[in-house]
Amino acid sequence: MISSVYPYITPPTLTAQQSNRVCNALALLQCIASHPETRSLFIQANIPLFLYPFLNTKSSTRPFEYLRLTSLGVIGALVKTDETEVINFLLTTEIIPLSLRIMQSGSELSKTVATFILQKILADDCGLNYICQTFDRFSHVAMVLGRMVLQQV
């Protein structure tokens, strides 16, 4: 029985069953991420970083789409609580570019969760400061949001 998933990301050969299994594991990690007693420990252990390779996948097959959505769900559960600790942690990682990319190219559901994550970062003072610190960061975010609005028109 195959248990580890990283080797199946590049080249993208993840099967539906493997995807299901890892998504069950991710659901349990999400459970840990959303519980007030374990959230802080979860962040201090840097566990979200292990999910970033999944967010970085580009294959649009169902197993990968499901994997990205579930991984985003874990980060979404973290930011849902509006805690500065969470935002400060995320700012030290590359979640913003990952979210921005999924906002442009993901499925409808993934886009929604990725946008939610960015929204929560922008709603936090530290997050807003971070994004406005350099022109590059600000313009990247503004351009992606602008493009999304244009797509809606």
Binding site: S4, N24, L26, A27, H35, E37, I47
Partner: peptide, 30 residues
């Protein structure tokens, strides 16, 4: 466990503090 996660309030605490659980979850991921 993932099916029942919504019904067990302290599942997160149990998983975190039980021996090897988080390591297993990470192993599944990596």
């Amino acid at each position: 466990l993932s099916r029942k996660r919504e019904k067990v309030v302290d599942l997160a605490v149990l998983l975190w503090h039980s021996f090897g659980s988080v390591a297993v979850l990470l192993h599944e991921v990596m």
